[in-house]
Structures are given as C-alpha cells and as structure tokens.
Simulated assay, not measured.
Amino acid sequence: MTQRPTALLIDFDGVLRTFDPSTNAKIEQRYGLEPGTVLDMALEWDRLLPAITGRMTRAEWLATVAADLAPRVGGPGRAAELMAEWEVYPGDVATDVLAFVRDVRAAGLPVCLATNATIEFHDVLASFGLTGEFDAVALSAELGVHKPAKEYFQAACALIATPPPRCLLVDDTDRMIRGARAAGLSAYRYTPGDDLTYPRRALGL
C-alpha cells in the first residue's frame, strides 16, 4: 500500500523559478546566434557535470561557454560581452509555487529544495529573498552528487529526516521524476501554469 507523503522535495529552475526565453534570445540575436544557443551549450553534460557537483565554480563553467563561443561571435572580447549580458537576467520566482511551499510548511510538513546547481546557489536564493523559505536545501554541488542519482535523493530525504517512501518530489523533468521513483519517492511532473492540486491533495492540504 502506498504511504501518504509527509514531506516535499521541490525543484528550483522550471518550477519555483521561471524564465522568459525571449529576454536572452534578443541578446543572442544581436551577436548573430540562434536563440537558445548559450543555454544549450551551457547545459552540455560534459560541461555541466563538473559545475553541478562542486568541481567547478559558476564563473569557470560559463567561461568554458564563452571560450567555445568566441570564434562564432568575433573573438574572446565579444564572447565575454555576450556572456556578461546573458547573465544579467535572473528569471522570476513563481509566486503560486512559492505560496504552495509556504502552505506545505504551514501544515507542519518539511520542504527540501532539491536542485542541481553550482556552489554559489545560496547567493541566488538570497538575491530572491528566499533564504529561510525551506527546511533544507539539497544542493548537488555541496552533496557532490546530482539529480536524478539514487544517492542524491537519499541525501535530500535525509536532510529533512524523512524516508524516501514518505517524500514527494515536484519537478518539471521526466528524467528527474523517473529517478525519484526509482529511489523510492513518489513524484509529480510539474508544467507551467499547473495549479498544484494533485500534490496538495497528496500531501493532505
């Protein structure tokens, strides 16, 4: 029999933080690039993995992107200018998702922010005024292991002292959902505009 979850793990980018792709698309087009080029390069797995497991800083990670873009945009100086502009847009906090997080905690259930991110991620939370909004932050760069590895989810659940079968993950990526379920958690795929009715009910709210 499936146990009702008594704790929440929630993703950051794509769930709690959203981006308007047109903002950076306009910057890329000014440099002669197709929209999405910078992000696609930044997320190349061999480039991303060292950054999200604490072996490379954010600046070092993005510097590798700039180096590879340089021949396409007119040299290292232009590539540095592009990346400086591209980094300015921080995205936006999804207020409805933040309200959901607060409702879960108000009900006495722990919430762990579960994210693959660089070691500077706590500064990002502070910049949005989100420090203290979670009972724990499972940051891949601090744990040394990334979602959707089983070890990541075990560590995240341990941070809120809740066994995996009693934890619900809300994430926007199928790969993370499958990984969480394989690790023994329940999991819900979030899509933009979702009213979160299902996870609310699952948590007894």
Rank of each mutant, 00 (worst) to 15 (best):
V93W: 04
P50W: 00
A107N: 12
I160W: 00
A25M: 08
H122M: 14
L9T: 05
I119D: 14
A51S: 11
E87K: 14
L125P: 02
E81P: 05
P35Y: 03
S22L: 13
A138I: 04
D96V: 06
P192R: 13
R72G: 03
S22F: 04
A187E: 06
A84C: 12
P76L: 14
K26V: 13
G132E: 13
T18G: 11
G14A: 12
V73C: 09
D92W: 07
V101C: 13
A187D: 07
L185M: 12
A155Y: 03
Y188V: 05
V104Q: 00
G179K: 01
D174Y: 07
F134V: 06
P76Y: 06
A141F: 02
D46L: 06
H146R: 15
P148S: 10
L8W: 00
I177W: 05
D174H: 13
P35K: 08
A202V: 11
A66S: 14
A202F: 04
C157M: 03
P76D: 15
V15Q: 10
T64G: 05
D13C: 11
L8G: 02
P21R: 12
Q3C: 12
F100P: 00
R58L: 11
A114D: 02
Y188D: 08
D194Q: 09
P110T: 11
T53W: 03
E87Q: 15
P165T: 05
Q3T: 15
E85V: 11
G144N: 09
S127H: 12
R30Y: 11
A94F: 02
D96K: 11
G204I: 10
R4I: 09
Y190W: 11
L109Q: 09
M83N: 07
V97M: 05
A136C: 10
A158N: 04
Y31I: 13
P110S: 10
A79T: 08
D68Y: 02
P199T: 06
V73R: 00
F100T: 03
M176E: 12
A79N: 06
G75C: 14
G91C: 08
V38S: 02
P163V: 07
P199Y: 04
Y190P: 04
A59R: 14
R189F: 01
G75E: 13
A117S: 13
F100N: 02
G129D: 09
L139A: 06
L48V: 12
A7M: 06
G108K: 10
R72C: 07
W45L: 14
P148W: 00
A80W: 00
G193W: 04
P110Y: 04
A136L: 07
A114L: 07
L8Q: 04
T18R: 12
H146A: 13
S22D: 12
R201V: 12
G74F: 01
N24K: 08
R201D: 14
L48E: 08
